[in-house]
Nucleic acid binder design. Structure first.
Lengths: 338, 338
DNA sequence: CTGAAAGCGCTTACAG
DNA sequence: CTGAAAGCGCTTACAG
């Protein structure tokens, strides 16, 4: 239990009868005579030597640390992205510093700077994000992942959220819905903006007479649950709901159950994300699938490339989405209504 | 966008006209004349100085880094614990290094050693854990959180899982169930052992004639889903299921739906954990609640105390659980069966 | 190929 | 209270 002190490269050198710099070369692939290398490797193995990363970071130009900003780990959506980023970083021998909303933007910025991270993968940026902008202004490379910001000085990767909105509009219109409500995500999030814009545009195009009610769900379960219950209890409830993400759609499904509203008989519900629980038999949520792992993976790779070549032009990748039809949507006609 | 080089304490010192060690003292609360301190603080603020943590770690006895080992971030259960640990560490100015199953045990051990973490919070230990033991043997303080190991040389915190098993047995027996199956968690996990043991003991005590079938769900959705479908399709299906955690209970609920088995009419299902989704109207899972955040918080605090006082006696805390009755369990009599 | 040396940015005794 | 100096454990030119 007593803390076993770590061996340093100096001790390894002494034991192998070489200079410390030779040990360093063996470790980092410098040119070393085969026989010297063998001897050093032996001593290294004997002690199961692990270089002190703090020392290495201090002297090297880079720390090998990448910040990953996730606002809300509790949305099952984000752990999937963390894992994908982690996998890429791990492959490249980089380390991950997780920043959640436990710290304020100011504290997080301070932490990223104190840690001297090489770059940041930012998953939950807002339009005037209080963390993303300052980080970037400090010259730390940032890649925006999943949520983007127009004009942001960094690489960006996102799903085709506008098309997502359009697909949902088409689906609900095709089913005959004419009283539709949209449960919106956080206002300054690009995903909510784009999904909303795509949906509205398609509606205006195909069915300008449809009255669209919009409520704010803030990408939050409890907020959406309350908003949808209110919506359904009103005199003229909508026959269909487009929720900007699955968490809010799950809330809507449960709110409907609480209000005794049958889905999809009296209400159709569509989400966006395709979270794991959406495929459950008890849920069967019609939703739009986005390639979550892929988005995160691409973001991580873009960051790595950026670190290699800071001057290359910015990229902005938009990955395709797909409507997943399940059991929460059904045709609607005035007669269907009870 | 160009990387803005960080200022060092030497530059601060020069600009403030003091020695670098004085800057260090101002930063760390050493004794400094009020007027000197003021001058240094001004320069510090002007540059928004952030000390290089790598440098600090290198020279100080401790790094301020705490490893948090989470096998599967995808179980909604774990992010809740991460957050609780994060909150405590953040309060204390410590940093968190997340270790998931992206790396092997060997790689994770190497990483913890290279990073020179001060200690580790271990959430998913197995009986002969390939990571927990070696880490501890390297003299790094480990606190076992949620899952424990008998005889492990570290502080431990867990829920009262034996009582959890007993509570469930009582509940199902009270409802009249006599054909019961248990969907078990990973074999070498203390939670599965204790929940299983408590359940079996109570059954043996109150209703030795009950035949208990046990299947392995491995704390995994897909595994449990398949196992439960098979169970329900058999000639003599059980009338009640005790799943060692909620993820597996959710799988069971969905498997039942897939098999056209009515819950709770034809099958009662009980979980363990009380995950957020269990309270959903669409799920309404009867389960055992354990104080998840609290367990994680206590673990983090025990680790902090351990770092303060490495020689104090080991503690082992067991926190109470509570049965949460919802809609997936119902009375059973031979006549009820279809 | 290899060693001696400088230096990364801090903290911490040690003098004064 | 404050400064000069040593040293943490590495990487990286620089000589040889």
């Amino acid at each position: 239990m007593a803390r076993r002190p770590s061996v340093s490269s100096v001790q390894i050198a002494r034991e192998a009868g070489v200079a410390q710099s030779t040990v360093s070369r063996v470790l980092n692939g410098g040119s070393v005579a085969p026989q010297t290398r063998r001897r050093v490797l032996e001593v290294l193995a004997k002690h199961d030597f692990q270089p002190n990363l703090a020392a290495r970071s201090l002297v090297a130009a880079r720390t090998g640390l990448v910040g990953v900003v996730i606002r809300d780990l509790t949305n099952p959506f984000y752990p999937i992205m963390v894992r994908a980023v982690e996998r890429v970083l791990h492959e490249e021998g980089l380390r991950l510093l997780l920043l959640s909303d436990v710290a304020t933007a100011q504290e997080s910025l301070a932490m990223l700077r104190r840690e001297r991270v090489d770059g940041v993968v930012f998953t939950s940026a807002l339009r005037e994000d209080p963390l993303a902008w300052p980080v970037s202004e400090h010259g730390i490379p940032v890649v925006l992942c999943h949520r983007t910001i127009e004009g942001f000085p960094g690489d960006q990767v996102e799903a085709d959220n506008t098309t997502a909105g359009r697909l949902v509009a088409d689906h609900l219109l095709d089913l005959g819905h004419r009283r539709i409500a949209m449960v919106c995500g956080t206002e300054r999030a690009s995903t909510a903006e784009q999904r909303g814009a795509g949906f509205r545009a398609r509606l205006a195009e195909r069915a300008p007479q449809v009255d669209l009610v919009e409520v704010q769900g803030d990408y939050d379960y409890a907020t959406s649950y309350a908003a949808v219950r209110e919506l359904l209890a009103a005199p003229q409830p909508p026959s269909a709901l487009f929720c900007h993400n699955d968490v809010m759609a799950h809330a809507a499904l449960n709110a409907a159950a609480a209000e005794g509203v049958d889905v999809p008989g009296q209400l159709s519900v569509v989400g966006c994300d395709d979270a794991p629980a959406s495929a459950w038999e008890r849920i069967e949520l019609t939703t739009v699938r986005q390639p979550l792992s892929r988005i995160a993976e691409v973001a991580a790779r873009l960051l790595l490339e950026r670190l290699q070549d800071p001057e290359s032009p910015l990229s902005h990748e938009v990955l395709p989405v797909e409507l997943v039809l399940r059991a929460t949507t059904a045709p609607w006609s005035a007669d269907t209504a009870s």
